[in-house]
Write a protein that binds this DNA or RNA. Structure first.
Length: 252
DNA sequence: CAGCCGTGGGC
DNA sequence: TGCCCAAGGCT
């Protein structure tokens, strides 16, 4: 839920989710459509599908217990490098480089003196992060949590609170006078008018309906027929929407 | 690896 | 107000 989503927005959904499905097996025993419905408006609803699929795999291949190693975790759907490292580190105390957007920004500023990291993680950045990771499992896990929290609370993207930063005295970016970012332009994704927005609109119709909805209800939601059709086809292909009978759509 | 995959709050 | 961005993953 936290992937690309602010903590404050996740909290209420997360709480209701665990109330309803306290264990991976409980989630796996529901339909994927119920997961999509409970996901609500968190965004990137394929994450709900993947979480349901991961729960199913945990139930069927791991005896219902969340696996504890990075290799087992990253093999689960929707679990990539960051999430696997985070779970292994935070939940199981293993030593891993936990490189999320917060840590990347903290390391960019403190170690390389740049206001923002590169667009994507590269080898050099990963190696640099590894060089400052403490040796012991316990210290590494504490380091991962601390560096993430520092980025989330103090060393934020827009308004870093250097005045209250515990490592301001060893920060390369601060020492350099907090120079403005001068790397390649950081691109912000368009949203209005994109297929992504269209998919969101169409899925909302199906998600918020009691049972199946007729094609006409969906068509009324988006003006451009070509884009609307493409979006609906892709939603069905992704498994977010099912055509339960010709011209009628529902959650899977 | 660049581009795609949602949504809404802050400034 | 529009822009920026948020505990990424997948292809």
């Amino acid at each position: 839920m936290l992937q690309q989503t602010p903590v404050a927005r996740v909290l209420p959904v997360h709480e209701a989710w665990l109330e309803r499905w306290p264990t991976p097996s409980a989630l796996a025993d529901e339909t994927s459509g119920e997961a999509v419905r409970a996901w609500g408006r968190l965004g990137y609803p394929r994450r709900a599908l993947r979480l349901h699929a991961a729960a199913t795999e945990i139930r069927d291949a791991h005896g219902g217990e969340v696996p504890s190693t990075y290799d087992q975790l990253i093999a689960l759907p929707g679990v990539g490098d960051y999430t696997a490292a985070a779970i292994a580190s935070f939940a199981f105390g293993r030593r891993h480089v936990v490189l999320d957007t917060n840590v990347r920004r903290v390391l960019a500023r403190t170690l390389t003196g740049a206001e923002f990291p590169a667009a994507s993680v590269n080898r050099a950045e990963r190696d640099l992060a590894a060089t400052v990771l403490p040796e012991s499992d316990d210290d590494a896990a504490a380091w991962a949590a601390a560096s993430m929290e520092l980025g989330a609370v103090i060393c934020t993207a827009a308004r870093p609170a250097c005045d209250s930063c515990p490592v301001v005295d060893l920060c390369a970016w601060h020492a350099a006078g907090r120079p403005a970012y001068d790397g390649p332009a950081r691109k912000v994704q368009d949203y209005a008018g994109t297929d992504r927005q269209c998919r969101g609109r169409l899925l909302a119709v199906v998600r918020d309906a009691e049972g199946a909805v007729p094609r006409g209800r969906i068509d009324a939601e988006w003006h451009l027929a070509e884009q609307r059709d493409r979006a609906l086809v892709s939603l069905v292909a992704d498994g977010l929407v099912a055509e339960v009978e010709p011209g009628w759509f529902a959650l899977p």
